[in-house]
Design a protein around this nucleic acid. Sequence first.
DNA 1: GAGCACTGC
Length: 840
Amino acid sequence: MSRKRKAESGEVLKIGNKTISLEGYLTKKPKTATSTPSTSTSDNNTPVPSTENETITKDPREFKPSRPLTGDPSLFATRRALPLYLYQDRIRSILSKKDVLVLVGETGSGKSTQVPQFLYQERWCQRRRVKVKTKVLDKEGNEVLEEGGKAKTREETVNVGGVIAITQPRRVAATTLAGRVAKECGTPLDTSGRGTGFKGRGPKGKDGKGSKGGKEGEEWDEENDVVEEMGKNNGGDEEVIEENGNEKKDRKDQEKGLVGYSVRFDHRVPPGTKIKYVTEGMLLQELLRDPHLRQYSAIIVDEIHERSVDVDLLSGFLKQIVTGDKAGRGGIPLKVVVMSATAQVERIKKFFSSDDSLKKGTSGEEVEYLEIEGRQFPVEVIYEPKPVPDIQEALLKTVFKIHTQEPLSDKHGKKDILCFLTGQEEIEAAQRLIEEFAETLDPKVPKVKVFPLFGQLSMEAQHEAFQPIKHPFTRKIVLATNIAETSVTVPGVRYVVDCGKAKVKQYRPRLGMESLLAKPISKSSAIQRTGRAGREGPGKCFRLYTADTFATLPKTDLPEILRTDVLGAVLTMKARGIDDVLSFPLMDRPELEAVENALVHLHVLGALGDDGRITDTGRKMVLFPVTAPYARVLLAAADPRYDCLLEAIDIISCITAGDDIFMQVRSEEDKEAVDVYRKELQRREGDLITYLNTMQRFVSTPSADRGTFCKQRRINVRNMRQALNIRKQLRSLSVKNKMLDAESLMPDAEVTYQPVSPETAERILKAFLKGFAMKTAVLAPDASYVTAHGKHVVAIHPSSSLHGVKREAIMFLEHVYTQKNYAKKVSAIQAGWIAEALAA
DNA sequence: GAGCACTGC
C-alpha cells in the first residue's frame, strides 16, 4: 500500500502498481503558497484602512427608514431598537446596485433576523420566467458533445429567483431564527406537535432562545418515539407564488407563510416562502441538483467568520455563480450578502471579486462593505502581570478574588462567573479545587455553587448550568469548554475567566490521522470569550495570561478546511462538477499534500477513476449524508457478496449520531451496575458488532421499555434518537437508490431480536473493510498493534470493548492522537481480509 | 484506562 509520487511532475500519482493521471484536474498550481497553512492566511495582519469603514451618523431623522415595518406590530418596538434598523435603506440601496455585500455586525445587531426582511420585497427579489440553455448530459452525467467538440445544449424555460436563503452553521440557529422571523412577519411557523423527537445541543439556542422539539432531560420520550417520515414536509420548495406586488397577493402570501427553514430531518417550507433559513450543508446538498441555485434571488451567508468547511465550499460555489456568466440563471444575477461578526473584510471582499478586477488592480469594487455596531456592554479586560506557572492555581485565585471583592448582583441582575477551560479533565479538577476552597471561607462571605458544562454531559446536567441559582447569598460559577463560546449562552454572566487555551482537532495528512491537543486560542476567540461578560450589563474579563502573550496570539483561528481531512471536501467538489479541484476558489487552500492524499484515498475507495474523474460509485456515494468511507461501506454492504445493508445502516447510524451513544459512567458503583447490562451487548468481534447488537436490541424493545433500556445501559437518549433518525434516512435513501427493496423492510415492532451469526458478522466486517482497509493494524511480535498503512504503533482506546485484548489484526474507524496514538471503534479481523478488501 | 465544538435532500 505504499504510495510513490513522481518527483519531477505533479501530473501522475502512483498507488501500489496503479497509476492515476492527474491531468485535467491538477492542472494549475494554487495561486497562494501552500507550504505552510500560516502563509495562506497572510493578510490576517493587514490592517483594514479606515477609509473603507462606512461611517454612518446615527441621527434617526436623517436615516429614518423610508418604509414602515410590516408584520406583527407587537414586535415593532424591539425591532426598531436594533442597531440594524437605521441601515435598512442603505442596505437596500447597495444591493439594488451591487451583487455582493459584506456586512460586519457584532452579536446583537439583529443582522440575522432583519436583513432578509429588508430585502424580500425588493424588485430584484421577484421570481421570473426566463429562457436558459442547458447542457445535455448522458446517463453518467457527462456532457454530450456535438460534432466539432462543443457541448450540446438545449433551450428551456425555467423560473429563477423569488426566495432568499440564509445559511447557518447549526441546525438550532436555523430553526430558532426562522421561528423568530416568522413571528415578526406575522406568519408564525406552527411547530407544535412536530415529533422530530430530538433537540439541539443545549437548553438554550445560540441567541439565548430556547431550542425546541423534544422535552428536557434524558428520559426516553414515548410521544416522540415515532420519528417523522422523511421528506414529508419539504414539498413546498417548488411552489413559489408568482409575485406582482399587489396587496391581495401579499395577503395571500402571508396566509401561506413567508418564512421557512430546512435542516436535516426537519423541513418547514410553507408554499409562498420567501425567506428560508437553511444549514450550510443543506444548501451544498441543493447545489447538487441545482448548480445555479435558480430558486434563489439572494443567498445570505451568516456567521462566515466561523469558517466551517461547508461555508468555505459554499463561498467558492457562490463566487463562481456571482463572477460567472450567469447563463444558467438566464442572465439574472444572484445577490450574495456575507455576514460576519469579525472583520476579515479585505480578504472576503477580494475573494468575491472577479479575478479580472484583481488583474486590473481595482480589487473589490464590485463588493460593498458595511459595518454595524453591536449592542454590547463594555467589558474591562484584566491580564496577569506575568505568565502563570499553574493554570488551576491561577484560576482558583482569580475566581475567589472576584467572588470576595465583587458584588453578587447589581441593577442589571446577577453577576455570575463563567470560566473557559480546555476539557472535561481540567473542568473536573477545577471543580474539586473550588469546592474544597469554598469550604474554608468565612461564613459571612457568600456561598458558591459550581456547574461544569461540556458537550458530553447529559442534557439535565447541562441544563442546570443555565438555571438561575435558587439559594440566596450564593454565586454561580460555570466551568465550561468552548461550548460556551459559540454554541450556548449562559445567562447572568458578568465575569469571564479565560485560560487562553482550547482543544483543537488537527488532521495530519502525512500520518493520515488527527490529533486533539490543547493549543493557544486566537485573538478573535479571546475577544469572543470576553464578550460573554457583556451580554446583560457591564462586565470584567480576567485573562490568565499576559498582555504580551495576547499580542502573540494569531489573529483568527485556523479555518477548519486547514485542520481536517479534505477527503469529503474534494468529493463534494468532484460531485458538483469541479474537475480541477486545485483551481477551485477557496479563501484558504489546504496544503497540496492534503489534497493529493484525498485524491488517492478517493481513488482507493473507487470514487475516482484512473482519469481522476468521479465514477459511478463516487456519484452514488455522495447521495448519502455520511463521510466517504461510510458511503463506500453502504455500497459494499448492498453488494450480494456481502448482503448486509440493514446491518451496516444500523451500525453507521449509531456511530455517526454525534458522540458515542454509550455515555461514560462516573462513579464506581454505577459502573458496576451498568457493566452488567453492557456486557450483554458486547460481542467478541468488537465494537461494530456491539453497536449492531445494541441497535437491534433497542428497536425490538417495546416503546414503553425503551427508557429503562437506555437508563440501565447509560445510553445517551439524545444520540440514540439521532441514530434512529439517521437509520430511517439511510434506509429511505437506500430504497430510493434501488439498493434496498421497500417490501423487504419489516416494521421494527414485528422484528424479534436474534443476535447475528458469526458468519454474518464476518460479512459485515468485510463490507466495512471496503471503506476502511487503510485503517487496519496487525499484532506485532512485541504485542503492539502496527498499522498496515504507515507502520505506526497504535493502542486500542479504553472506550473500546477490545481494549486490552490481543487479536491477530484489527480494523478501526477512528485514529486520534491525544495522550497516545489511539485506535477507536475497533473490530477484530483476520489479516488476510485486508488484502482481499483491497483487491477489486 | 480516556473523551474541544459543530454538521449533511
